[in-house]
Every structure is written in structure tokens, then in C-alpha cells.
Design a protein around this nucleic acid. Structure first.
Lengths: 340, 340
DNA sequence: CTGAAAGCGCTTACAG
DNA sequence: CTGAAAGCGCTTACAG
């Protein structure tokens, strides 16, 4: 932090300009309340001294930080990067700064990060997913800190959400898979414990199976953290079964790309020997060969809308409105149509 | 921010525990200085009230935030994700919190973000690349805020750096390319203006050309922002030349993957019709087919070392020591050996 | 339009 | 080991 002996304070500016600290403060925060001549003098002093307001002091006195905190599960891959980028762009345009933390998909770390962000005076919080220990929402409510849950749409939830319906999106993809004649379906899911998006995607697949009069109970699901290598390993396991699946639906594109690599390593062709699907439609999905059939998530739009909604909440213009964004199925080369 | 009427303060805790605020503060900051019995009583009160220290007040009183700021050029892709992840892990292990901002590769935005982070009381700053307006370093020095430059190693620089030598790394790759018999070499570079890493990579290639008695002046270089689509477009332009290159060396893997796609779209085979190389060795490089020959950058190690070095500076244990990390050339399928 | 002064919620010498 | 008190640098009613 700054060295007090060297960094000018409001007091220094006031003295240099021959006014009170109140006036200097006003010049900075509501300049229209200061007559021009005085203001010019003050601004000149600020410039001359190279004054920057002390953040801590300002926060403490004003009880606002113009800071929004976001906690995402991981920064290690591109899943959240796109959405977060537009989220931050929109915040910036509205005069807010974004603080990002990551939780490594661990509720305990997420809670720690939430407290850290709150302790840092975040005016509002963006969280990924809706379901978490209610005590956290109580904690936030007690401090009247607005929270928006994103990457998920839950009109029934206790918190406002701006996102998409993970379950119906996966169901739509699974219907397509079934319509293509696939019957031996397996899934490589992310860890569902503590991850409502992952759980909803599995549920969406099961729903589609049930609709199609397929045995949802017999569905083979491997749960594994969202990492490329894990996708490869899981595919190997699944394909070594006595009756290997004709299609492996993955919880996201990272796992799908890993599965693709795993197939290649086993000498299997995709989609001739096995079909693979993903979820998210991040850049990765279009970079590999064949390109991955996946669920397109409107990340950029979601980020922007989330920022708008959260700032509205922070500025008391809204108690929090949920917004549903539409996903779409992206048909690409990794899914084979067995009817042809 | 918190609603004062509802959020417990140090005072509330002190009253509840029947001690002074000084004691409560000590329990939080140097628990060993409080006798166990008292401490237990205080901790129970903290728990019971759900107390969280007020950040602004703490910062103002302690003149430390235990916050490190990092400004990276972009969050939109994986280039910086890996390194930043370990950077933040190491900070966390040492009790610091990371604040990340991005500059969109624009010096002006970077400067704005630097001021924002400083205003927020960052104890230290991580910046990507070394070369920038000296006024920025002066500003930081006046506030005695330690700065570490990373993703670059510059023993001659005005600031300590923890990173690698972009120029010699690219030169090493280019030597290999030349050794493979390539003579018609072109480059797709990132924008070099305001980006010392990008500029150093171009310089490294030129050096290797000169060494090999090739005409460095005739080198065709297209500069374009680091985006996949731009890599594809640049490749198209280069391959439409009268005498197209036998190899296209890209400023990073993102451009290389784009170039690969561009080649495929033109019906060209890689590496049969044209070789492609990258830089960074991010996951992308191994996901595509063929895999990209590239420069491996030790991102994770760099992130960890940068955190260590910066914290040492912050805690006055060091005035800032530069550290060079080694890169290595990763030979993969996208580069053809013309001698065979 | 401007100023004097209280107060924001902590930390930290200084005593005891 | 613990407490009383000053002080950190701002903002904001409240007066004038």
C-alpha cells in the first residue's frame, strides 16, 4: 500500500487549494454542487499534488465500492471466460469494477471467496449456479448484498437467475440423439455433487430416455472433473464394456474433446465407431476434427444480461428479475445419424 | 454494501465477549497474543454474531490489504489462464487474495486498471510484459507499490521480471524450422505495437533468418490480434501469394490453430502443403490434428514463481529479483521436415 | 455555495 | 495478557 509520508491526502489538497476537505470531496463526488471558480482551484491542486482518493477510507465513509464480485468455478479453461468477459465489459461501461475469484468447484472454497469478496465491500455478487447452502444466502441477505445466480435459470429458486435451463437444453440434445437412432447411450458427466448444472444435465438426459421408452435406469454415467484427460480416460472405460455405447454424451465440451482424443488413442473413429456430444459450444468444440455436436449456450449475451440485472439490483431499481436465455442444439460432425 | 443497522461490528463482538475491541482485533490478526480462554470466548462471539471484518476500515487502519492485483491482456482465451491459476493458488496459500483485471491489449485501459487496482489498495501488482510508459512505473514507485513484470524476462529492464526470453525462444524454434530445410518462411504475429512479447518473437525469427543467411528483410509478416479467425484469414492471405511460404510461424497457438483451420478451409493439408508453428503450448495445441509444433512455456511454474517473487517484494524481503525460466521447442505433427 | 465536525470500523503503539 | 484511546482518510448531514 501507499506510504503515508509521500502520498497526498484530501487534507493536503484542501490546504493547497485553501478550502475545506468537504469541498474537495464534493468536487470529486458531486462537482455540480461546487461553484466553478472554487472547483477549478481544487482540481488544479489535485492535479498538482497527484492526488488519488484512498479507497479504504472512501469505502468506509461512503459505504459503497462500485465493485462487483464474481466467483466462478474455474479459470483454468474457457468455459466461463467468454461470459465473464462481456459481464465485465458491461460493468465497466456502467462504472463498476469486477473482482473475480474461483472456487475450484468446491463449495467450501466458494464460501470462503464469498466472504472475502463481501469483506472487500462488493456491492453485489455474481455466482454460478443456484443451489448452495441456504446459510450463504442468509448471510448475504443480512448484509443486504444483492446476489445474482447465473449459468442457470431457476424461476422457482430463492434467488434471481439469469441463464438457461440446463435440463431442458440437454434433453433437447438427447432427443436429437435418440431420433438419430441411438439406443446404447452413455454419459460422461461432471461431478454432480454441489453442481446443479451438471446434475440438471444428467437429469435432462434421463428425461429424454424415459420419453423415448428407453431404460433410464440402465444409463451408464461416469462422473469426473471437467478436464480433458478425464474425458479421455472415461471414454476408454466406457468403450471397454461388453456392449459399448454407440454414443457418449458429455457434460461439457471439455470432456467431449477429451473423449474424442481418447477415442483416437484407442484407434476408434468418430463418429463411425462411436458418436460424441458436448455442451457449451466453446471454441474448442469447433477446433477439433470432427467438430463436436453440442448445446450452444449464449455466453456473451448471458454475461451482458447478468451484469445489467445485477447492477439494477445494486442500484435498487429492481428486487431481482430472473431471465431465461435460449440454448440451441448445434449439429456437427461428431454425432452420427444411424438411420442412414 | 452492508446495511449498518444489521451488520455486526468489532464493537458488537467486543461487547458480546466482554472484552475490548483491541482484544477482538488481536484474536483475528495475531491470535497467539491472546490467552486461549479469552480467545475462545471471542471466537464464539464472532461465530454467534456472524461477524466479518469491514474491509475498508481494516485497510485504512492497517495500511495493508493482503490483495495482489494482476492485469492481463485478455481473459477471453486460455493464454494466461494456466499461469494465473497457479499464481492465484500460491497467493492464496500465502494468505493473499488476487484481483484480476484485463486490458484488451490496450495500454490506455491497462493504465486505467492499474489506477483502479492501486486505488483499491493492492499491496503489489503483476503486469504482463515489461515495456510501458515509464510514467506508470513512476506513479507506482511514488506509492511504493511493488510491481513484477511477467511472461517476459528482461534482466536489463527497469523492473524485476519473472518469465522467459521471448526472443530466444522463438529463435530456437525458427532454427529448428530452418534446419528442417524451410526457406520460404512467413509469420502471423500478434500486434507488436505496445506488446513487447510479440515484438520479441518477431525479432527472434529475424535473428534466426539472419544466422541462416536468409533474407530477413524479405520476411512476410502479418500482424493481427490474437484470435482464431484472424489466424485463418491471415493464412489465406499468405497462401494466395505468388510463391506461398512452406511454413507459417505464428505468434501464438491461438493464431496457429486459426491458421490450421484456414488451411483446411482452403483444402490444404498440414504439414504436406504448408507447415504451421505456434507459441505457448496451451492445451489447444495438442487438441487439433495435426498437433501444433510450438514453444513450450512453463506457465504453471511461471505463475508460482511470480507469486513468490512478488510476495517477497511486498513483504520487503526483496527489492525484486528477476528470474529466467526456460522454454523448450515442442516438435509435433504440424511442422514438416523437408529433408526427408 | 462552503465549512466544522461527527462518524465510518478497524489497528496499534503505549500503558499497566 | 488486556484495555483506553488515538488515528487511518474519507463523506455527509447540519448549519450558516
Amino acid at each position: 500500500m501507499a506510504d503515508a509520508s509521500t502520498v497526498p491526502t484530501l487534507d493536503d489538497v484542501a490546504r493547497a487549494a485553501g478550502v475545506s476537505t468537504a469541498t474537495v470531496s464534493r468536487c470529486l463526488n458531486s462537482p455540480e454542487r461546487v461553484v466553478e471558480q472554487t472547483r477549478n482551484r481544487v482540481m488544479a491542486a489535485i492535479e498538482a499534488l497527484g492526488y488519488t482518493p484512498n479507497f479504504g477510507a472512501r469505502v468506509m465513509a461512503a459505504k459503497r465500492t462500485f465493485t462487483i464480485g464474481a466467483i466462478i468455478p474455474t479459470m483454468d479453461n474457457a468455459i466461463f471466460a467468454r461470459g465473464l468477459q462481456t459481464f465485465q465489459e458491461e460493468l465497466h461501461a456502467r462504472g463498476y469494477t469486477l473482482l473475480v475469484a474461483s472456487s475450484a468447484y468446491q463449495p467450501q472454497i466458494e464460501e470462503e471467496q464469498i466472504r472475502a469478496l463481501v469483506a472487500r465491500g462488493a456491492d453485489g455478487l455474481l455466482l454460478i449456479g443456484h443451489d448452495r447452502d441456504p446459510a450463504i444466502y442468509d448471510y448475504l441477505r443480512a448484509r443486504s448484498i444483492p446476489v445474482l445466480a447465473s449459468w442457470v435459470y431457476r424461476p422457482d429458486g430463492t434467488q434471481p437467475t439469469v441463464g438457461f435451463d440446463n435440463r431442458s437444453a440437454m434433453r433437447a440434445l438427447a432427443r436429437q440423439v435418440i431420433a438419430f437412432g441411438h439406443r446404447r447411450i452413455a454419459m460422461i458427466s461432471g461431478i454432480t455433487d454441489g453442481n446443479d448444472r451438471a446434475a440438471a444435465r444428467v437429469a435432462g438426459l434421463r428425461e429424454a430416455l424415459a420419453e423415448g421408452a428407453l431404460d433410464a435406469d440402465a444409463l451408464r454415467v461416469i462422473e469426473t472433473p471437467y478436464e480433458i484427460d478425464n474425458g479421455a480416460a472415461a471414454l476408454r472405460t466406457l468403450m471397454q464394456a461388453e456392449t459399448p455405447p454407440s454414443v457418449i454424451m458429455c457434460g461439457n465440451d471439455v470432456l467431449a474433446v477429451g473423449a474424442l482424443r481418447g477415442a483416437r488413442e484407442m484407434g476408434l473413429s468418430v463418429p463411425e465407431d462411436v458418436s460424441i456430444t458436448g455442451f457449451d459450444d466453446i471454441e474448442l468444440a469447433r477446433i477439433v476434427t470432427p467438430q463436436i455436436t453440442t448445446v450452444h449456450v449464449p455466453h456473451r449475451d448471458m454475461g451482458r444480461r447478468a451484469a445489467e440485472a445485477l447492477i439494477d439490483m445494486v442500484e435498487k431499481r429492481s428486487a431481482g428479475v430472473s431471465l431465461e436465455l435460449e440454448c440451441s442444439v448445434q449439429m456437427r460432425g461428431s454425432l452420427r445419424d444411424l438411420r442412414t
